[in-house]
């Protein structure tokens, strides 16, 4: 599936994006190797979602280069090399879970079997149920199944657990972790520090459109000389509202 062998899962250089007066993304450089699980961390307005939108081809950068497995984001999406769970929900109430995932699969050239995607996302038992009758946590896992049914090498999750309660969050991460263990690369954004600490190999901290720290959780903490990620986060971003 990978066209450019040896190309990193994701390569971002000099990325910039301005919305009106706001510099949402102000010079981001980032390389994610194959098989890494990376947390993109930062307060609201740090530029996480804007960065992700550009990585998956939903928004066009004002400046900078992005390649996913060596090709443009749009091409990566077209070839099913990148699976995306966008922040805002998208399930049609009148359609069943199985039909929804089967539709997404049918749009791709070499998808996973629908049953496998449902099973990996932990929603195999819900295939016949319409979206209107799903709980928030179930919906999120269906959306996870939609993201992984193309059999992507890179999975991008934009604040996947923002709307979930503690139990649903834990279940979601268990599924994600199992999928990552098959050698896939994962990039997820969150503002839950404990999630970054528990599930990521590497943490990328954003603030005001820039990356202010990048490395393994332990290294990021050492760099700041703080006692925990929360303190490191506070010190680097200078934003007390960010802690939840």
């Amino acid at each position: 599936m990978d066209i450019h062998e040896g190309a990193p899962a994701l390569s971002v250089a000099g990325l910039r994006k301005t919305y009106g007066e706001t510099r949402a993304v102000d010079g981001v450089d980032l390389v994610v190797g194959r098989g890494e699980v990376v947390a993109l961390l930062g307060p609201n307005g740090a530029g996480k979602s804007s960065t992700i939108d550009m990585i998956v081809g939903l928004a066009r950068p004002d400046a900078g280069e992005i390649t996913v497995f060596g090709v443009t984001p749009r091409e990566a999406v077209r070839k099913g090399m990148v699976g995306v769970m966008p922040q805002e929900g998208a399930l049609l109430d009148d359609v069943t879970v199985g039909e929804t995932v089967a539709l997404i699969a049918s749009l791709h050239s070499a998808p996973l079997p629908v049953e496998e995607a449902l099973r990996r996302a932990g929603v195999a038992g819900l295939a016949g149920r319409r979206a209107a009758r799903l709980s928030g946590g179930q919906k999120q896992r269906v959306r996870f199944a939609m993201a992984l049914v193309s059999g992507p090498g890179l999975l991008v999750l934009d604040e996947p657990t923002a709307a979930l309660d503690v139990t649903a969050r834990r279940e979601f991460w268990r599924s994600m972790h199992a999928f990552a263990a098959t050698g896939r690369t994962v990039l997820f954004s969150t503002h839950y520090l404990d999630e970054a600490e528990a599930y990521a190999d590497r943490v990328v901290l954003m603030h005001a459109g820039r990356i202010v720290a990048d490395g393994p959780v332990s290294a990021v903490m050492a760099e700041v000389g703080a006692l925990g990620l929360e303190d490191a986060f506070l010190r680097l971003t200078g934003d007390s509202e960010a802690v939840r």
């Binding site: 070839k79 966008p86 929900g89 399930l91």
Partner: peptide, 12 residues
């Protein structure tokens, strides 16, 4: 509800 957005993340 973001369905069009979701479709933009497919080859369609």
């Amino acid at each position: 509800i973001g369905w069009q957005r979701q479709l933009r993340l497919t080859p369609l």
